[in-house]
Nucleic acid binder design. Structure first.
Lengths: 343, 343
DNA sequence: TTGTACGCGTTATCAT
DNA sequence: ATGATAACGCGTACAA
């Protein structure tokens, strides 16, 4: 590998000058700059990134932590792909690289491990759940001053840097839409409570029902775990009380689709016999039958914002501590929420 | 940050000894080893990975190149998620890290850029297409002796290291299955020709038809581009000649689902009026209505094998040049291929 | 079995 | 505007 030294010799300057040229530092004679660049071109010199990291004492890597994803799919891959793309776009703009860390199933959540080998300067943590163990791990990071960012998850009562979406407002809009279409008996199929999304969506649902003066009977509140299967199973419960339900708002697309599959087996077709709206607007929403109305979440932008913020926080130190944000969602209406309430 | 030097001082040994302990090198007195480990524990010492990379002159990173994925989804995110998981599992086992590189739309495919900054020791390239430009980029890598591996793509006539699946055999099995179910007029909806999968699947289809003594009229060969939309549009063509078609084998799940959606609008239900089998067994196969029969491809294992092979090739030099492999597929039968041919 | 000493390719500080 | 030089934290050949 050709090094700075060889470039310096060929250009007839010192090594320091070569560095200055490549880092655009200090004043320098255009002629020398040109000589150096020409020499570098001739030798096909490229700075050694590892040596740079070593000297600068920063890795130039942003770590991205992905949760363990077992065969029972609670997350859609769409979700992570979008967020990752956003992160990728931002790190490229900042000359950073992206180091992926896939958690193991049993892995104790000792995030500090990632930092202490100094292979990452900051981290974005995806798919975090609100459990005592998680809170403790994150708390520990924060106390040690290690820069990190959570995406699409809020820890009430803590002051972590988070980039979230306004799920409560999104849910409110979805339920309002169903009401405007004439539906009154609207059920809510929620996901696991350890995700803050769940609480937010429940809140949006309840507010929309209250604002419309509609009663929320216990039977209208169903509980799933974000898997297709749990939505499929909820169809049974719903069928039991089919006279009391005209529409369902589900906390994600997978459950919504499972629910539609379950009810179809009993003869109820979404968009004809009842209405459904899901959440996330993943690509499965377009693949389902009928196509699923859903709340679109700006995952790409969330990833990008998280990367921007957490790197700014790191690069400018405490001076620019990032502040949590909440991006807006939007409702995408498709066939599953069409039709009208049964008379 | 606490360094080797401090540990050495506290333990009353030289820095070299500390290194030996942490690398398990050379013979050493158990007592000294224990003293060093105790000192390290006390100081919470962890080797600096960047400095290690610098000294060892290897990054300890495996690069993974992902293609640009525009809004028109030709790849399923499932596909990449599975392969990435496999890679992730393997690199962890080898103490490596995973550096993600997301290509930009216009980006000229100069893969050497990834290596010359020395941030990766080897690369796995996903979603490569067989174009002159691609071949040239890869050829260049090979000539420079840079270790890389292609997953799920074959370049006929070249000797790249590739981990592929036996798509021809998988397709053969799928079509044979349709024949065993009594179908005779079987169409094939292929994807873009720049992916070797397409040619392989076509070959499997043709062989199965030939082996069964069935004629392949030109009308039975449809062309899509792996997007749902292209499958949806193929439904029109198919409908034109509906008397000549009883079943369809599609080169991926997205097209198969689009096709089912298109034909449903005309009144044909998959699994009742005609049969469909897709490829990849992505999770959308379980979400579609009816659930889609599909050829399962061991993406996880392919990713794992690619990582294993390419790292072995790098770590042991030319001595252990990895040899291309082709993993087996399997057919998963669901509702879309049930039913029986119309009389 | 352990210590000494050098090198790795930069960045950054201080002279000139 | 440019050059000399000291870090940076570790691996490792060689010496003891």
């Amino acid at each position: 590998m050709v090094t700075r030294k060889e470039v310096a010799e060929l250009a007839g300057v010192s090594e320091a000058t070569v560095s200055r040229v490549f880092n655009g530092l200090g004043p320098m004679k255009p002629a020398t700059k040109e000589r150096v660049l020409e020499a570098a071109r001739q030798l096909d010199y490229h700075p050694n990134a590892i040596a740079q990291s070593f000297a600068r004492r920063r890795s130039g890597n942003l770590g991205v932590v992905l949760p363990y994803m077992p065969k029972v799919h609670l997350f859609s891959t769409y979700y992570f792909a979008e967020i990752l793309s956003g992160i990728g776009e931002q790190v490229r703009e900042q000359g950073y690289d992206l180091l992926l860390s896939l958690l193991k199933p049993d892995e104790s959540l000792d995030y500090t491990r990632l930092y202490r080998s100094q292979k990452v300067d900051a981290c974005i943590i995806l798919g975090a759940r609100d459990t005592p163990q998680q809170r403790q791990s994150l708390q520990q990071l924060q106390e040690q001053g290690l820069p990190f960012c959570l995406v699409n998850q809020h820890f009430e009562g803590s002051t972590f840097y988070e980039v979230d979406a306004d799920h409560a407002e999104g849910s409110y809009q979805a339920v309002r839409h169903l009401q405007e279409e004439g539906y009154r008996k609207i059920a809510f199929l929620n996901g696991s409570p350890e995700y803050s999304n769940s609480a937010d969506r429940l809140q949006g649902y309840l507010r929309a029902m209250a604002d419309a003066g509609l009663e929320v009977t216990p039977g209208l509140l169903l509980q799933g775990n974000y898997s297709r299967k749990s939505g499929y199973e909820a169809a049974d419960q719903l069928w039991e009380q089919r006279e009391q339900v005209e529409a369902v708002f589900a906390a994600n697309d997978r459950m919504a689709i499972g629910l539609m599959q379950g009810l179809r087996e009993k003869g109820w077709i979404a968009g004809r016999d009842f209405a459904v709206i899901g959440c996330d607007d993943s690509d499965s929403a377009k693949l389902s039958d009928p196509p699923l109305s859903s709340i679109s979440v700006p995952f790409y932008e969330m990833g990008k914002e998280a990367a921007r913020g957490v790197l700014a926080g790191f690069l400018h130190g405490e001076s620019a501590k990032p502040v949590s944000v909440k991006l807006p969602t939007s409702l995408v209406v498709r066939q599953s929420s069409k039709g009208s309430p049964r008379k």
